[in-house]
Structure formats: C-alpha cells, structure tokens
Nucleic acid binder design. Structure first.
Length: 326
DNA sequence: TTGTGTTTTATTGCCTCC
DNA sequence: GGAGGCAATAAAACACAA
C-alpha cells in the first residue's frame, strides 16, 4: 500500500439480515423502487445495509444465504444455484456499486465534494461499504468532475475564439478593401501627374519649382475629394500598408505595378544628383514624398512590423497566432 | 460470439498540510 | 511522520457493432 495507507477490507458493512435482492437485484434502474430522497434523508439507516461489495468473497458469503450481498454487477436473478455458486467461487474481483449506492453517493457529492472523515464513515455505514471505498469513489468522482469542467472551459474558450476570429476576419477584409482603394487612388493620381508632365521623376530636370510635397498633396486632395477624406491621419494609416507586402496577409492581389517593391519607390524618388546637400537633407528630413504614401519616419517604427498601423493591432505573424487551433 | 472502445473501481507514487 | 488529495495507471465491468 502506498503512503502508509492500509486497506482495511473485509469487516465493513452493516451486516443487516434482511435480503435486499428485491430492491437491488438489478443495477440498471429496475431497483429504484425507493425514492432516492427518502434514502438520503431517511436518517442513518437507508436500505443499503447488507451490501458487501468489494469485500472479500469469503467475507461476503459470510454466514447463511440470507445474508447474500447485492453486488452491483449481479443481475443474475434468473440464474440457477449452479451459476450462483460459480459466481461466488470467482476470485475476488471488482464489483460495481449498485445504481442506488451511486445515486446516494452522487447526492452526497452534490452537497459537498469533499469528504470529511465523519461523513465518510457515515456514508460507508449507510451504504454498507468500506470507508475506503467511499473515499475512492469521491476521489474518482472529483476527477470526473474536473474533466468535465475542463471540457466546459474548453468549449467556452473555443466559442470565444471563434467569435474573435470572425471579428478579425471582418476587419481583415475591411482592411484589404481600404488598401485596394488606396492603391487605386494612388494610381489615378500618378497617372494624372504624368499627364500634366509636371512630375517626371525619372528626369531630374523636370523637378518642379514648386515644393514637391505641396504639389502632390494638392493632387492627392483633388483625387481624394471625390471619395476619400483627405485627413492626414486617415491616409497615414493606410499608406504604410502599401509597402507592407511582406505581411502574410497581403494576398489581395491589387498591388499596383507602380508600387511593387523595387519598382515602386523610384516613382517618388527624385533624382537627387543635382540637388545640394541642403536640399537633399531637406527632402529627406521633411519627407517630401507624398505624405499619404510614405509615413514620416517618426510616425512609424519600421523596426517592429507588428506595430505598424497596417496590422490593426494584430501581430504580423498572425499565422502563428492562429496556428494553434484547428 | 467476439473484438473493441468506454466507464468504473482500485492501486501506486508523489505531494502538501498539520 | 501520518493523513489525505491528486495524477497516472491498471484492470474489471460494461456497451455495442459486426
């Protein structure tokens, strides 16, 4: 025995003389002739006396035939004496508790799932079981309860996750739609600028006298006026998305050819070979590139892509975020 | 009837508390 | 150090399909 525990089987039970085979001859429900509540509330001597389940068969057979135990698995009421004899000559085996015993224990468990020594003794006495059997039953019952509780918790978490994922998917869809819109408008804008001939970025001689930022901003606002608000904060959140092609979410396939990585940036990069260092610095520091395309460096921290506005607060590596489920 | 999966009863070993 | 709880596990009992 572990932990110094001693299995004191063999001598428990009430040893009542009245045969209970009428009441407990079938564990599958037919024995429920007595309401459980009356069993549970009927004081210290419910009709379990005489049960010797799990005790030694030598003990169980005990005295005379009238003291026959009502083992839970014993539903051989139609068997003859030979079968009965065989049954009792089996080596000691596990015996299931009767349905009534289990119901009684269940009721007790509902009241309190912990078992103080006194209650254990009382239950054992009432049910005609060994106190250890009662303790074991409670222990196993607690384990089952815990498992079910875990299943419930899991279901709740799963539901919560499903809800959040649906919400996330909607946001992602919305994001991609906005992204596509930005790209479309950008293309339109570039096309218009080219038609005007005032924005030939590949030709440094054509750099406008007007500050580039002003030019583009005005054009942007013209383009935006029809549909999109020209508010700086609105656009700046989208502009970082344009160059977010590394994001695993970027699957909308609406990239403008002008904005493809390695191809797009030069569109807005004036050839600075003829600029003075000051002008060059000015260009860089003030970010003369269109503000709705390139965020100011101080606005966006590219060192941590997960913090960029294009992700709506979700980590870029969201595939890792979702990968644990399903 | 038999094979197989599930449930229930019981054991073992470890841990915590008093 | 003993009592009791818990996790892991064994094994019997049970359910059920083929």
């Amino acid at each position: 025995m572990a932990g110094g525990r001693v299995y004191t089987g063999g001598s428990g039970g009430g040893g009542g003389s009245s045969p209970l085979s009428v009441l407990f001859q079938n564990q599958k429900g037919s024995c429920a002739s007595q309401p459980l509540d009356s069993l549970f509330l009927s004081g210290s001597s419910p009709s379990f006396l005489g049960s010797r389940s799990m005790v030694s068969f030598e003990d169980a057979r005990g005295g005379n035939g009238s003291n026959r135990p009502f083992f839970g698995s014993y539903d051989h009421e139609d068997n003859g004496d030979d079968d009965l004899d065989d049954y009792f000559h089996q080596p000691e085996k596990k015996r299931r508790l009767t349905a009534d015993q289990v119901q009684f224990l269940e009721k007790s468990f509902e009241v309190d799932n912990k078992l103080e020594p006194e209650r254990k003794s009382q239950l054992a006495k009432d049910l005609g079981l060994q106190p250890r059997q009662v303790a074991i039953w409670f222990q196993n019952r607690r384990a089952r309860w815990k498992t079910k509780q875990l299943e419930k918790d899991f279901d709740a978490l799963q539901a919560s996750y499903d809800s959040l994922k649906a919400e996330y998917d909607n946001l992602l869809k919305e994001k991609n739609e906005l992204k596509a819109e930005v790209v479309l408008l950008t293309d339109k804008l570039l096309l218009r600028e080219r038609e005007r001939g005032g924005f030939e970025l590949s030709d440094t001689n054509n750099l406008s006298q007007e500050p580039l930022q002003k030019q583009v901003s005005e054009s942007a606002c013209e383009a935006e006026a029809s549909k999109v608000s020209c508010k700086q904060e609105d656009i700046s959140s989208a502009k970082s998305d344009i160059f977010d092609s590394d994001s695993p979410h970027y699957t909308d396939g609406v990239h403008s050819s002008l904005l493809e990585p390695g191809d797009s940036s030069h569109v807005f990069e004036p050839d600075q070979s003829d600029l003075s260092q000051d002008e060059e610095d000015n260009l860089m520091s003030k970010s003369l590139l269109p503000p709705f395309i390139f965020p100011k460096l101080e606005d966006v921290d590219y060192s941590d892509p997960s913090e960029s506005s294009c992700n709506f607060g979700f980590p870029v590596e969201d595939h890792a975020f979702w990968s644990w489920s399903y």
